[in-house]
């Protein structure tokens, strides 16, 4: 074999070897074990923090609210639907307080009249007409909405 061909072959072999080594170094650990991705990424995705604790954990302490809710139409609502994420409150109940909505517009998110809302799915009111100067919680107990309080039959327009 002519010397120049030999030299070229040696250079080519070195390049191929360098490429293979480089490629092995670049492929991350566990890549390709389950498919064209890092299998360890599944664990990474599992490790994200949980913020919504689930209502069973609420009832461990707030049994009274659970009993109250069960009697009325909000029985199916998760506590965190209105009060927001509760994991931090679970861990330190004294220092972390949850959001307590006290605003007509917040109730209106579900209960404001809208054609797109199924009438069977939820009670709806005209926010501007239904006792516009009062907070919803003045009459309605949010945990048991049909347990009315402070009701003056002269004033109400149902």
């Amino acid at each position: 074999m002519p010397i120049q061909i030999k030299r070229h072959l040696i250079i080519l072999a070195i390049l191929i070897a360098a490429f293979v080594v480089f490629q092995q170094l670049m492929i991350p650990e566990s890549f390709g074990e389950l498919g064209h991705y890092r299998a360890n990424s599944l664990e990474d995705n599992e490790l994200f923090d949980i913020h919504y604790a689930g209502q069973e954990s609420c009832y461990e302490c707030h049994e009274d609210i659970s009993d109250l809710k069960e009697m009325d139409l909000h029985y199916d609502l998760s506590c965190e639907t209105c009060h927001g994420p509760g994991t931090d409150h679970n861990l330190s109940p004294d220092s972390v307080e949850l959001f307590i909505p006290d605003d007509r517009n917040f109730c209106g998110l579900c209960h404001a009249k809208n054609t797109a809302r199924n009438e069977d799915a939820v009670f709806q009111i005209e926010l501007k007409e239904h006792n516009p100067d009062k907070n919803c919680t003045y009459c309605h107990n949010p945990h048991a909405p049909w347990e009315l309080r402070n009701q003056d039959p002269q004033e109400e327009n149902f």
Binding site: H51, G54, D76, L77, S78, T81, C110, A121, V122
Partner: peptide, 8 residues
């Protein structure tokens, strides 16, 4: 979380 909080 979305399933957890869905009221309906």
């Amino acid at each position: 979380a979305c399933v957890e909080v869905c009221p309906t």
